[in-house]
Design a protein around this nucleic acid. Sequence first.
DNA 1: GTGAAAGCGCTAACAT
DNA 2: ATGTTAGCGCTTTCAC
Lengths: 331, 331
Amino acid sequence: MAKKPDEIAKALGVSITTVRLVLGGKAEKYRISQSTQARIHDYVKQHGVKFDLTARSLKLKRTHTFGLIIPRLANPFFARVSEELEHRCREAEYQLIISCSNSDEETEKELADGLVQRNVDGLFVVSSTSHCQKHLSNSISKPLVFLDRDYGDTTAPIITSSNYEGARELSAALLKRAEDEPVYFLVGGIDQPTIKERVQGYLEVMPSLAGNAWVLQSERNRTQDGEQMMLALWEKLGKPPKNLMVSSLPVLEGALAVLRSKLGLMPPKLRLGTFDDNRMLPFLPNEVWSVKQDEAEWAVAALKAMTQIINGQAPQSKTIATRLLHYPNSC
Amino acid sequence: MAKKPDEIAKALGVSITTVRLVLGGKAEKYRISQSTQARIHDYVKQHGVKFDLTARSLKLKRTHTFGLIIPRLANPFFARVSEELEHRCREAEYQLIISCSNSDEETEKELADGLVQRNVDGLFVVSSTSHCQKHLSNSISKPLVFLDRDYGDTTAPIITSSNYEGARELSAALLKRAEDEPVYFLVGGIDQPTIKERVQGYLEVMPSLAGNAWVLQSERNRTQDGEQMMLALWEKLGKPPKNLMVSSLPVLEGALAVLRSKLGLMPPKLRLGTFDDNRMLPFLPNEVWSVKQDEAEWAVAALKAMTQIINGQAPQSKTIATRLLHYPNSC
DNA sequence: GTGAAAGCGCTAACAT
DNA sequence: ATGTTAGCGCTTTCAC
């Protein structure tokens, strides 16, 4: 359908260069005649043009492409971040290439290498481990912006949420309604800096003596980890807690699944606090608080930092404010 | 860090060609001496290599890249499809480039053009409209696999779910428990073939006379459309329905939001039927049925069809079976 | 056994 | 005002 520049040149009896100059907006600069310009533009309007961006990239050493490495797209939060970032990149004339590391170190490194070999102009990474973040900082010679997690091992800019403040707000809201019952906290993925901040915020708000006894931890951050922690808590209490905070939605799913199967029903008197938002939270029987992160702001800040690096300016890390959502009992 | 072939050649005192031959696995064919091979491999093991895939692509006219156009990544179903497909493509040594059309015709065309200019080797598309599907079928000269929606305007293979059978199953399950009360159906996005199939399945199962009177329709498929349809239904009934089926999760969200605000609480006696899955559905107070699509199977079938086109075989369209999930009352 | 050379489609500097 | 040319890093073919 669309013609390549050399076909246009042949069809119109001009040189390829002339076609390229006109189509590249350099017509004025090289004083191409109005009539030639018009002929070329007309032809293009009829038939369309097709440039080969691969060849351009080879020549210019820039692909107008960014890479994004996230743990999983199945995680709705990262999916929304990806969508926002893809959108902003496109506005800035960049194509975003999204890949999932599955929180695996090796995969993350391989993906980064692959994207570098494809000559992306920059890389956004949600790094799975401290070691990985350090490795990428050292081995990748491209502009690099880290998202979400700051292991403290890099000079690259970091975009993240105010997890500490969010956790304080959430903890305070739950504590206020706790009716002197403990607010238990199921924490998955304790090695992640974001999670550590959430725990710190919680601990500082909770009555100091009892605090640590109310926290249950798990290495990872999956539904089954939530199940295990809830089982452990049940073991201890012999009944459902009155107030429960969780570090993420997968943990919440696991915890609720255990409660449901133990009780046969959901305990509607249970007050829940969680991070991240799910559209169905308002319809749970329980009273729910949720710390919502601002994906759009993440995307803006991330692209800004990337642009700054590319333009040789000092890139700005940014911590994006969270917002506490509240859904009353529905039963 | 990693060395380019010319640097390796210089360091080892051999020609670039030799390095490339060895690293390209053509050493035997050109009878490069064992010692040279060993020296090159050793050097690479120490320092690493960096090939420029851009240049290779230019030469070979293949980028080992596929494009995927979906409406939104914020839609968890498409996010899961994308993740699965990205994973399978990577296994097949292809990089997947995911872009969101926002269900907009113009955007969809621009994205497709952009990906073609980037020389992707093939394109997976969830097309927003019949017109768009037809346009792409005609104007794109690359291997093309459509996902989800078959407007009947293309000879390209189509991967989709058994929406008709799924709707029949769901309708039958609800009808069986309906206690002689109507099963209302809120339908968003009536122009989409998938949605039409869902309506057809419903209509065939529901008692024939009353059927059509129980269906509410909306052009689009967003939360606000769900709200409007529920408001209209409320207008008609003056109370919540006993049985409600919806065509998608956004519609469900809108409908439930209206019920909650009208009643102050969720009506736990309400039985719900929906398409697609959300991890929180089991914890709603209501009894819920959900038609789950198999994203992994989609990815397998889509990549298979793409591979068939690339290999010059006849590509197979495929309709993937759905599974009906059931979650009892939780209150 | 190893090296040199052409050409993929593009850009930018240089000729006409 | 328009055309020619060199070279980006790769693959492939052919020459030493």
